[in-house]
């Protein structure tokens, strides 16, 4: 057996690390409790306690689903798909130049153009498509167009951000090789950059399309067309058995679109 070592003290963390860690956790817990209290100040707990009863009540009204309602949903479903697809198309078309202007290695000007492009990306990304829809319905009136533009505006930031990150990660050697042949700026983009980012581009676009399908199902809540419009009117008339049918249609659509996008991404990557 090994022996003969004198007693040494081993501490998992130094006392200072220990205190810092403890303080960190304490701070997080305190902040959470504080936020919780602030948040629930006006909560009426009687309503919360009543929730199980409400839930069973609503559950009872949701079942059985009113299947006949399905026939009124085909048109809104078609609209929803169009909102998502056309919106993605618009978003992608605008996102491409924005991404090139935002990427450090392709931007014409680091100090003037790039910040503007980044600002466009952040603005588009921070604002949910439902808020864009809210604004657009107020501006250009309810309908599919508002939904399409809302989806498009939200997609710009998402697609442009992922795309410009892909552009920044390209292999510079290929760019140098093309530049060495005396190619112009546009030719360099055409021959050296686009082939490298094309798979990423298709992957990102399809991924966003998948997300947009989910988002476009609810845009109708604020008047921007599609299934959400039906949801809104069923909710306002408390027709819960129709709500169930809408939920199931949304679920099916989401599952199918996820499957399609997974297949397409597998094919391009």
């Amino acid at each position: 057996m090994i022996s003969g070592a004198d007693t040494q003290i081993w501490q998992f963390r130094t006392p200072k690390q220990h205190i810092l860690r403890w303080l960190g956790w304490f701070w997080l817990v305190a902040l959470t409790v504080f936020c919780w209290n602030l948040m629930t100040e006006d909560t009426i707990w009687a309503f919360v306690a009543d929730a199980p009863r409400q839930a069973s009540d609503i559950g009872g009204r949701m079942l059985p689903p009113r299947w006949g309602y399905l026939n009124q949903l085909w048109q809104p479903l078609w609209d929803t798909l169009n909102i998502a697809t056309l919106g993605t198309l618009i978003g992608v078309i605008i996102a491409i130049p924005v991404a090139f202007l935002a990427a450090g290695n392709t931007t014409p000007s680091r100090y003037f153009v790039r910040p503007v492009a980044l600002l466009i990306i952040v603005t588009s990304r921070s604002i949910n498509s439902l808020i864009w829809a809210l604004l657009l319905v107020a501006i250009i009136g309810p309908g599919l167009l508002a939904g399409i533009i809302a989806i498009g505006l939200r997609s710009i930031g998402f697609v442009a951000k992922l795309l410009y990150e892909a552009i920044e990660e390209i292999d510079e050697k290929q760019v140098e090789a093309i530049r060495a042949t005396g190619a112009s700026g546009a030719q360099i983009i055409d021959y050296a950059i686009i082939p490298q980012i094309l798979p990423a581009f298709w992957g990102i676009s399809v991924f966003r399309w998948d997300i947009n399908i989910r988002e476009s199902t609810i845009l109708g809540l604020v008047g921007a067309g599609g299934l959400g419009l039906q949801l809104q009117s069923s909710l306002s008339t408390l027709a819960w058995n129709q709500v169930t049918v809408i939920f199931l249609v949304i679920l099916a659509t989401v599952i199918v679109s996820e499957w399609v996008s997974a297949k397409v991404r597998q094919a391009v990557l």
Binding site: I2, S3, G4, A5, T7, Q8, I9, W10, F12
Partner: peptide, 26 residues
């Protein structure tokens, strides 16, 4: 979970680390 091992285990660990020549890397 608290890393509170018996002192005997820690002593043995130190002597093993010395044995393999890593006494001061613990």
């Amino acid at each position: 979970f608290l890393r509170r091992f018996p002192q005997a285990d820690i002593d043995q660990a130190f002597s093993l680390l010395n044995r393999v020549g890593l006494g001061d890397h613990c």
